[in-house]
Design a protein around this nucleic acid. Structure first.
Length: 936
RNA sequence: GCCCGAGUGGCGGAAUGGCAGACGCAGCGGACUCAAAAUCCGCCGUUCGAAAGGACAUGUGGGUUCGAGUCCCACCUCGGGCACCA
């Protein structure tokens, strides 16, 4: 970090150097704070100023808020934050009331782990880290409304996180209305007989039994089900936090499937709406498809196969191939396996099940693809044709998906085909493949998938033979299945319910206590927040990472005084046991954008009027939600899925008017940087590496270069503070944005920073006399040419900023300034426009120049210039003249010349005549204002 | 294996189907200077040519079109997501 040109001793006193930039920046940052420049008024409530809001359109511009790491901001943060700040400042200058602020996602593992190591309470570390990051953010000149900043660990904030949890706890999903409703409405339906209880006769139930019935319906519920137990972390984790190879995404420890009593959230009931409402959102297709993939909706049918042990139900996406089902396969854990297994097969089945149980889900999926399985000895009836087909078990069928059982159609499914070949099971052709391989499956090399006429697919009441399309055959089969009671069209999802409890310390306590029957009770709203109790034992009990049979032990379990409480929850004062779990880190980030709207409201998490103003559906946003949300793609499923779910519950319960939290979402790229490994593969300090003739050495030893995400682990991180100290924040902002488009990952190059630094120096020099510091403007009015360049720049910059193309917006400003430089300075009558155009990008310099140009109020609300259309059209246009697509000449023609005239002038051109050699052209294409192409 | 996204100078990157390489870095030349730095002016895809000018150029191969970096098909490479999901 020493590539900045060191100013020579005789450098002019008022040159825009890193030192001057910092002096200017600190001064304006103080000024903005003192003047409360960026405070955005609300329609109502503590931050309300109805007259200031009246008649102004709004923009809600949002960043994914950071975790306050002890290392401070990394370069990826300013990348996104600078983009939103430029956009926010631009929108303010075009008349919008802009809500733009920043909070901290401050619960979570790192602070807790640090506490375990050092004994420092996580609150202390968190507060220090937040203070440091606030300082860094301020230094970048981000135009946040400081009053709206939140911290998820603040009791005044997590009080509402707990409150929302209770809203979800006290809600159920009505499958008919497809929405969440309050639990007392369910109770009323049971009372009136409108709905029947699942566990018995409601009227005859005891209060405890009724409570248990209701608990089964809640959107937040305690369940004893397979969860991801991570002994290395000492806690359970959500499906979304487990990597493909079965390890925790934090810490990279093994994760085991274990049955445990844990809090779950019924996100699966929202699967359809979470998929369908993606249509309303302005998100990239890539992101939408990641969400769709994760939810994994697949449409098909459930089909019942009868056996002596009872009905075996399968899920299939290809009911049309039922006639080709020649065997069945159950997951080894399937409950019917015991009763299906014949005495002769009992030993083989038991051995296989033992082997399968010893392997966890992830090993099973990772191991070789060679099919294994064992015959149960029993047969089931194919409902289509009455055929008796053998029932096998095999570990390629997973208990956790569909029904844990499949019908095998080897002619149409490659896995079933492989299995049939391995165990010599019959393969019946039910389509005549279009690739000419014929219907003798003994000659097939693989399964056939696709549209082809059906054969051998008829019974007395259903005839698919001759049907040519899969879709058609599916729908006929589905109809037949339900008419004959053999099954029904069904949709299944990959998405599982969300595991919501963690056995950690640094998180939100659950506002829940248990009675003597172990039934959960919500604590009343006035008792919120349930404060996280103090302790000096922050760690859960952790275990050997491979000890699958260990049991979680939360830090809160140890606090006996805290765990037991006396309360009157309606049945008189009784003793209750507190829930000792904490919420996952995602809880606080599920709704923080809503708290920004009304951060100091003591009566509600957000006032409905404020929510409707900032986030309600309006204009072309039917979903409502933040107008712009910028952040990393690593949250594509986790945070974005969870917060959409919470938002929809709040919507259903009438607390918010927006259907979705984030209307437009933009994923920024990563900052990459060169990283170097020595011959052992260990990363070396990237800033100590020497380059010569394309080879790289570190301390004399050869190292290899690669590019990777900038960060501590690759030893190639540069802190934003370093760049601010060397060049100033305005230069850093411009560099980050000028490097390339916001969504692209790009390598950081120290040597390139100087490009935008020189640009700022040239702007400065065009307005300020470097030796004296006096303003120096050209007295004569701007020429027609200069005005045209200016207006083209205005139009261009607006266009680029509207579309978040900051790199090209900056390029256009550079072009305009280069034009001024060639004039020898800035004509006095265009100086204001230049500075206002620059203001969103380099706000400190712009404020400084604005003041020096004689303005007394902040440039923040100075109107962004509007291009005069008359200045955008030229008098004359230069047309390239192509012959057969190659440019052979150029002609200059009046801008309003008719196409015929342009053609005549082009044909008369010497070079064109020479190239044509007297031949008449076959065809001439004139594109008005663009070009001429002559086809010879 | 499936689903996305991307391949353009030495480098980062620009280009509503219409002059490929805006802008910046690096490099080269010039002015200023005793000199250097800084600044300002100019050049800067490859190749043939003294020049004028020509040929070739947007991962590869086809196609559509008067015209393709851009649209279509196939393939290659890289990045990301999912993965025995029935």
């Amino acid at each position: 970090m020493s590539d900045a040109p060191t100013p020579a001793a005789d450098s002019p006193a008022h040159r825009y150097t890193g030192a001057l930039a910092q002096e200017i920046e600190a001064r304006w940052q103080d000024h903005w704070d003192a003047e409360r420049t960026f405070e955005a008024p609300n329609p109502t409530g503590p931050l309300g100023d109805p007259t200031a809001v009246a008649g102004r359109p709004k923009k809600f511009i949002l960043d994914m808020f950071p975790y306050p790491s002890g290392a401070g901001l990394h370069m990826g943060h300013p990348l996104g934050f600078t983009a939103t700040d430029m956009y926010a400042r631009y929108q303010r200058a075009t008349g919008y009331n802009v809500l733009y602020t920043m909070g901290f996602d401050a619960f979570g593992l790192p602070a807790e782990q640090y506490a375990v190591q050092t004994g420092t309470h996580p609150r202390i570390t968190t507060e220090a880290n937040v203070a440091n990051i606030r300082r860094q953010l301020r230094r970048l000149g981000l135009s946040h409304d400081p009053r709206r900043s939140i911290d998820t660990t603040d009791p005044d904030y997590y009080r509402w996180t707990q409150w929302i949890f209770l809203q979800i706890f006290n809600a159920w999903f009505d499958p008919e209305q497809k929405k969440a409703r309050r639990i007392h409405e369910l109770e009323a339906e049971f009372d009136s007989g409108l709905r029947t209880a699942l566990t018995g006769d409601w009227a005859a139930m005891s209060p405890a039994e009724r409570r248990r019935e209701l608990d089964q319906w809640r959107l937040a519920y305690v369940s004893d089900a397979p969860v991801n137990w991570c002994p290395g972390l000492g806690t359970v984790v959500a499906n979304e936090e487990v990597t493909a190879d079965g390890r925790s995404d934090r810490g990279n420890f093994p994760v085991f499937k274990r049955n445990m009593r844990q809090w779950m959230m019924r996100i699966t009931t929202y699967a359809d709406r979470l998929i369908d409402d993606l249509e309303l959102l302005d998100w990239t297709d890539a992101l939408k498809s990641m969400q769709r993939n994760w939810i994994g909706r697949s449409e098909g049918a459930t089909v019942h196969f009868e056996s002596h042990a009872g009905r075996i139900t399968v899920f299939t996406t290809r009911p049309d191939t039922l006639f080709g089902a020649t065997f069945m396969v159950l997951a080894p854990e399937h409950p019917l396996v015991d009763s299906l297994t014949t005495p002769e097969q009992a030993d083989a089945i038991a051995a296989y099940r033992t082997k399968a149980a010893a392997e966890d889900d992830f090993q099973r999926q990772n191991d070789s693809r060679e099919k294994t399985g064992v015959f149960t000895g029993s047969y089931a009836t194919n409902p289509m044709n009455g055929q008796q087909i053998p029932v096998w078990i095999a570990d390629y069928v997973l208990m956790g998906y569909g029904t844990g059982a499949i019908m095998a159609v080897p002619c149409g499914d490659q896995r079933d085909f492989d299995f049939a070949r391995k165990f010599s099971l019959p393969i019946a052709a039910i389509q005549d493949p279009t690739d000419g391989r014929g219907t003798d499956t003994s000659t097939w090399a693989d399964a056939f998938v696709g549209d082809a006429p059906y054969v051998n697919s008829a019974n007395d009441t259903l005839d698919l033979n001759g049907v040519a399309s899969v879709a058609d055959a599916k729908s006929r089969t589905n109809t037949w299945l339900s008419e004959h009671g053999h099954g029904a069209a069904t949709i299944t999802y990959k998405l599982r319910d969300w595991l919501f409890s963690r056995q950690r310390y640094w998180g939100e306590p659950f506002p829940i206590v248990y009675d003597e029957n172990d039934s959960p009770h919500a604590l009343p709203t006035p008792s919120l927040p349930v404060l996280l109790p103090d302790t000096d034992q922050f760690s859960p009990r952790t275990f050997d990472p491979d000890d699958a049979m260990s049991n979680p032990e939360s830090p809160l379990d140890r606090l006996g005084d805290w765990v037991w409480v006396e309360a009157d929850l309606g049945d008189g004062v009784k003793r209750y046991r507190r829930d000792t779990n904490v919420m996952p880190q995602w809880a606080g980030s599920c709704w923080y954008e809503l708290r920004y709207l009304d951060p100091t409201n003591a009566d509600a998490f957000v006032d409905p009027e404020n929510e409707a103003y900032w986030m309600g559906p309006q204009g072309d946003s039917r979903s409502g939600g933040a107008d712009l949300y910028v952040g990393g793609v690593e949250h594509a499923v986790l945070h974005l899925l969870y917060s959409r779910f919470w938002h929809k519950v709040l919507f259903d319960l009438g607390h918010v008017s927006s259907v979705e939290p984030f209307h437009k979402l933009f994923n920024q790229g990563y900052i990459l940087a060169a990283a170097y490994q020595d011959e052992r593969g260990i990363y070396v300090d990237a800033f100590g590496v020497q380059e010569s003739n394309g080879t790289y050495t570190f301390e004399g030893k050869l190292v290899t270069r690669e590019y990777g995400k900038m960060g501590k682990s690759l030893k190639n991180a540069i802190a934003p503070d370093e760049v601010c100290a060397e060049y100033g924040a305005d230069t850093l902002r411009l560099y980050l944005m000028a490097m390339g488009p916001l969504d692209a990952s790009r390598p950081w190059e120290n040597k390139d920073i100087v490009g935008v630094y020189r640009f700022l120096q040239r702007v400065w020099r065009n307005i300020v006399e470097e030796d004296t510091g006096a303003t120096r403007l050209l007295p004569e009015p701007a020429s027609d040419e200069t005005l045209r360049v200016l207006h083209r720049t205005i139009a261009g910059v607006r266009e680029e900023l509207d579309n978040l193309r900051f790199n090209t917006a900056i390029a256009k400003l550079i072009e305009f300034n280069n034009h001024l430089t060639k004039l020898g300075g800035c004509p006095a009558d265009v100086a204001d426009a230049l500075v206002v155009l620059l203001a969103p990008m380099a706000p400190h310099m712009a404020e400084e120049l604005w003041a020096r140009l004689g303005h007394t109020s902040s440039i923040t609300f100075a109107a962004f210039p509007v291009a005069d259309p008359a200045m955008l059209v030229a008098d004359t246009v230069e047309y390239p003249v192509q012959i057969n697509g190659k440019v052979r000449s150029r002609i200059t023609v009046a801008a309003d010349a008719a196409a015929d005239d342009v053609q005549a002038i082009a044909m008369a051109d010497e070079k064109v005549q020479a190239a044509l050699g007297g031949q008449a052209p076959k065809k001439v294409i004139v594109v008005p204002g663009r070009m001429v192409n002559i086809v010879a």
